[in-house]
């Protein structure tokens, strides 16, 4: 959606978007491979509802260029998400977001998540993140989840 309030500059109108645009960030210094970071970042945005079913994602070539990584890195991330049912990959048409049916509740997945969350919290504390800040992050996530329910 375009903000019709334009900024006049050198006789040129430049439109700015009002709604936050989905932006993907990766850090090449992390031990996690770039394709996993891309897949995780995209998955987070998909879960948060940043895209609707049918939305097109940038082409592999475009995203690779913007992130300054090899095409195969982006292609691998897209394949991973397509395997999970998030994306529809068609040759020459790029990646489109799919309507993802809710997965069946899996008690093992929940246990796995609980363990990983605790590990993640422990790691963050080791790295010096204050407990109050962690609690704040978890609470904001929790309220977001409650709203979506």
């Amino acid at each position: 959606m375009l903000d019709r309030r334009a900024v006049r500059l050198y006789g040129v109108h430049v439109h700015h978007t009002k709604v936050p645009r989905p932006i993907l960030q990766i850090d090449l210094s992390l031990a996690t491979p770039a394709y996993e970071q891309i897949a995780s970042g995209l998955r987070r945005l998909l879960v948060e509802g940043a895209f609707r079913a049918g939305d097109q994602l940038p082409t592999v070539r475009r995203l690779a260029m913007d992130l300054g990584v090899h095409h195969n890195t982006v292609a691998e991330a897209y394949r991973l998400l397509a395997g999970e049912g998030w994306l529809d990959l068609r040759r020459g048409r790029g990646a489109a977001v799919r309507e993802k049916p809710p997965a069946r509740p899996d008690p093992r997945a929940r246990a796995r998540f609980g363990r990983r969350l605790k590990e993640l919290v422990a790691k963050a504390i080791t790295e010096g993140v204050p407990r109050a800040a962690l609690s704040e992050e978890i609470e904001s996530l929790s309220s977001l989840l409650r709203k979506e329910r």
Partner: peptide, 15 residues
Amino acid sequence: TVREAELTPVQTRLP
């Protein structure tokens, strides 16, 4: 080492 990209498809618009 942080890289960022906008995920909305790019529409090439020339002035």
